[in-house]
């Protein structure tokens, strides 16, 4: 059951920011995650500020230099289907297409997808866990088969649910934010917060800050992008292991590599080790296997998710094989 709350739907961005300065206010965009969080009483929200009436927040536009500007309110299905996205960054279109289910993609927004609350059945359930102000992480010693193998520091061990964030990190995208003290720009790579830094924060966004849009730099020549998601069922599920690739190819050689894992850590997880193996090398079977091994070398699996190490390695190896076959796109 949803708790009692007030609801406003301003049509100006500035008004929305103003409303959000109210205590216990929350942004309502597509609502797909928010309504679940409210029903499960994860947030004690008294005011919902819907931004769905703010027209300027939607849409996909090409920007000077050939990059893209995507409004935060653009739906996930609009991104998956958009020709500019599909042409420039097929990996992002794929990431969007892999999100949840058709209904949720039609309703969910890019901004919302980046700001999702953690997916952990303890956090979402009736467990007063660390992230909700309690004194322990239930997943650490409990049922943690869906949880993180990187970046959890044995503090809070959920794995970040977004399928678009890893791709945006790999593409070097930025989020543009408006708040009470004006505008600022944050790299998507810096948006999410590790448990060790602040276990109560999901993102670096401050109270009343709204993501207005995301910009993605122009694709380099011979940029290959992809996104892969392994899950327990084929729709309406989060990643058990996933990866976004952004490889700038120079013939058979990888000139620049971005490998960002999903389903493995409390934040989109750039695999520097894999990137290092790949950069400057030809995509040979040996290099692919080596990169995949390197990606999981530092994994810290929990009691229930050791399988993720092999799955992640296997998934990455397969994705690199595809990249090798697909050449530069």
């Amino acid at each position: 059951m949803l708790p009692t709350f007030s609801y406003v739907r301003p049509d100006k961005l500035e008004q929305a920011v103003k409303h959000l300065e109210t205590e216990r206010a929350a942004i309502h965009a597509g609502g797909t995650d928010l309504l679940g969080c409210l029903r499960e009483r994860i947030m004690d929200t008294r005011l919902l500020v819907s931004i769905s009436g703010i027209k300027e927040l939607s849409g996909i536009k090409e920007i000077a230099g050939g990059g893209l500007r995507i409004g935060a309110l653009t739906t996930i299905s609009a991104i998956a289907e958009n020709k500019l996205v599909r042409d420039k960054y097929p990996g992002l279109a794929r990431g969007a297409a892999e999100v949840a289910s058709p209904q949720l993609r039609n309703q969910g927004t890019l901004g919302g997808n980046l700001c999702q609350k953690p997916r952990c059945w303890y956090y979402r359930g009736e467990f007063h866990c660390l992230r909700k102000g309690g004194n322990r992480c239930f997943a650490l010693k409990g049922e943690n088969q869906f949880h993180a193998i990187f970046g959890h520091d044995n503090i809070c061990v959920f794995s970040h649910p977004s399928d678009t964030a890893p791709v945006l990190v790999a593409l070097g995208a930025d989020v543009h934010v408006l708040g009470p003290s004006g505008k600022r720009t944050i790299a998507v790579a810096d948006l999410h917060v590790l448990p060790a830094d602040d276990v109560l924060a999901d993102t670096v966004l401050k109270q009343a800050e709204i993501i207005t849009h995301i910009t993605i730099p122009a694709p380099a020549r011979h940029l290959y992008t992809s996104y892969r998601k392994v899950r327990a069922r084929r729709s309406w599920d989060f990643a058990l292991a996933g990866a976004a690739l952004a490889l700038v190819m120079d013939g058979p050689r990888v000139a620049r590599a971005k490998v960002v894992l999903s389903g493995c850590a409390p934040v989109p997880w750039p695999s520097i080790a894999a990137e290092q193996v790949l950069t400057g090398r030809n995509l040979t079977p040996e290099i692919m296997a080596k990169a995949a091994r390197a990606a999981v070398a530092a994994a810290k699996p929990l009691a229930g998710n050791e399988y993720k190490v092999a799955m992640c390695r296997g998934m990455l190896e397969e994705e690199l094989q595809k990249a090798g076959q697909g050449g530069s796109r």
Partner: peptide
């Protein structure tokens, strides 16, 4: 949650995974 609270972890249609189409 057998070892800690005995409570049910997956009591929704996302966490309790029925096969989809």
């Amino acid at each position: 949650d057998e070892s800690q609270t005995g409570k049910l972890c997956n009591k929704n249609w996302h966490d309790y995974k029925l096969p989809t189409a």
